[in-house]
């Protein structure tokens, strides 16, 4: 199983991007070997889940982890969930959506250490281009951890900012994490397969 971990501040568009990526992976792997292509793990800090219902409406297989964050409070639950998925389904891909307040490093560490059947974890940080300048000031330590812990950074909502702002955001991301691949996209306008190929890598 390969794991793609979605992190990014609240409202950045994680669920909106996870949905088309899941569709892309389903179509890409369809009928290859009979294994289920994608299972999603949805984490909500509150006790009520909204995003998992949306994903299920699209016919996707979703596991829920409520009432805390998998980066600090639900690490054992995350381990159990991944290991159950491996034992029961063993899909090609597991997409994990962290809460908007989660940081990637502890999650990746948990999966690397305890996750069974995991070949590789790719961390995708989703950035809200509209709110970047505000968030990098107000919740700077959190956003910094999310960006610096990412393998790929998706600068989202590019349709809602002008070219200068987009350049500024991209520079800011690169200054924090020069080794990450950076893709610019808009979940609202649709994401092409070439972008998803870049995100998931070889």
């Amino acid at each position: 199983m390969r794991v793609i971990l979605f992190v990014g501040f609240l409202g950045s568009g994680k669920t909106s991007l996870m949905l088309p990526l899941a569709r892309f992976l389903v179509e890409r792997r369809e009928a290859v070997d009979g294994r289920m292509p994608v299972v999603i793990i949805e984490n909500e800090v509150g006790d009520v889940s909204i995003d998992d219902a949306v994903l299920r409406q699209e016919g996707l297989s979703v596991r829920e982890l409520f009432g805390g964050c998998i980066c600090c409070q639900l690490t054992a639950d995350l381990t159990s969930c991944i290991n159950d998925i491996h034992a029961e389904i063993d899909p090609h891909w597991v997409l994990v959506e962290a809460t908007g307040l989660g940081t990637p490093q502890p999650i990746v560490s948990t999966i690397d250490r305890y996750g069974k059947g995991v070949e590789r974890v790719t961390t995708l940080a989703v950035i809200d281009a509209v709110r970047w300048n505000e968030l990098i000031v107000v919740v700077e330590p959190l956003v910094t951890k999310q960006v610096t812990g990412a393998d790929v950074v998706a600068v989202n909502k590019t349709d809602l900012v002008d070219a200068d702002t987009l350049e500024e955001v991209t520079r800011g991301v690169a200054a924090l994490n020069g080794r990450a691949k950076v893709v610019r996209l808009s979940a609202g306008e649709g994401v092409g397969p070439e972008v998803w190929e870049k995100v998931i890598g070889p």
Binding site: E44, V45, G46, D47, V48, G67, G68, C69, C71, C72, Q73, T99, L101, G102, T103, V138, V139, P141, L142
Partner: peptide, 17 residues
Amino acid sequence: TGHRELPEEVESSVFSA
């Protein structure tokens, strides 16, 4: 609920129903 991972100087409140 609150959240453990946020920096100490930032509080957050989660309401769900």
